[in-house]
Simulated scan of single mutants.
Amino acid sequence: MANRRKSNRSKEKETDWQERVVQIRRVTKVVKGGKKLSFRAIVVVGNERGQVGVGVGKASDVIGAVRKGVADGKKHIVEVPLTKANSIPHPTYGVGTGAKVMMRPAAPGTGVIAGGAVRTVLELAGVRNILAKQLGSDNPLSNARAAVSALSALRTLADVAEERGVSIEKLYS
């Protein structure tokens, strides 16, 4: 009986992850007999409570590519510190290949002001109020990775105080 309860809990943990496909692209590889066709899927995985990851999967069919993308995304999960207003603690900047993403915290009620893959990453991370801008490349994979890079660079006051070995009150003075 205990084993059943345990398996039900693990199923619950599995189901609170959400997946969104950002892009599916048909790619080809030139081989001896001609061209080999496959699909590349860019998938964002998140639990809307401060954890998000971007994954890429390639397979000969779309379903297989998405499945591999989800598995890859779960391997590359980052923790995002959220404020009480479901925003980020401070402005941040992320780079992913040729893409750059700038993010700023926003007041409650602002919503997610971002476009494309960055919007998907922020929504699945659980961010509800933010201003974000994509700079440079418009490649969805590069922008998604830049967004994850920016989110992984975030630190709370408690983290900074612990890192410096001082109290939070000392940081304000």
Rank of each mutant, 00 (worst) to 15 (best):
M103A: 10
V44Q: 08
Q134I: 15
G57V: 04
V95M: 14
E79H: 15
N8R: 13
V44N: 09
V31P: 01
G98I: 00
A153N: 13
V101R: 14
K6C: 03
K58L: 12
R119F: 02
A158V: 11
Y93S: 07
V160W: 04
E123Q: 08
G50A: 08
R25E: 07
A158L: 09
V127N: 12
T28R: 12
S38G: 08
A2G: 15
K75W: 04
T156M: 01
R145C: 04
V44T: 06
S167L: 07
G109M: 11
A144P: 09
E79N: 15
V78Y: 10
G34D: 11
T28S: 08
T97G: 03
H76R: 11
D16I: 03
V160F: 03
E79V: 14
T156S: 06
L131T: 12
G126L: 08
R155E: 14
F39Q: 00
V31K: 09
E123Y: 08
R26D: 05
S10L: 10
E163C: 01
V62A: 00
I63W: 01
G115K: 14
A125W: 14
L122K: 09
I24M: 03
G33T: 15
Y172I: 12
A41V: 00
E163N: 10
K35I: 02
K11Q: 06
R155S: 14
E123I: 05
V62E: 01
A150G: 07
T120C: 07
S173I: 10
A146I: 02
A132V: 13
P140R: 07
S87F: 06
V30H: 02
G53W: 00
V52P: 04
M103I: 11
S38D: 02
Y172Q: 09
S10R: 13
D61E: 10
T83V: 05
G53N: 03
K35P: 03
V112A: 06
R4S: 13
K11I: 04
P91W: 10
A106F: 05
I77E: 12
A99V: 04
L122G: 07
K133H: 13
R155T: 09
G50L: 11
A144Q: 05
V148R: 03
D159K: 09
G96L: 06
R40S: 03
G50K: 07
K11P: 01
I130K: 13
L171A: 15
V54W: 15
T28G: 11
L82E: 01
R155Y: 07
I63Y: 01
K75P: 05
L154K: 04
T83H: 04
Q51P: 11
R20I: 06
V27M: 11
A59Y: 02
A71D: 04
V166R: 05
F39D: 00
K6H: 09
M1N: 08
I168S: 11
G98M: 08
G69V: 01
V56K: 00
H90T: 10
S60Y: 09
V66I: 05
V148S: 02
L157F: 06
L82D: 04
D159Y: 08
E14H: 06
E12Q: 05
I42S: 04
S149R: 12
V62S: 01
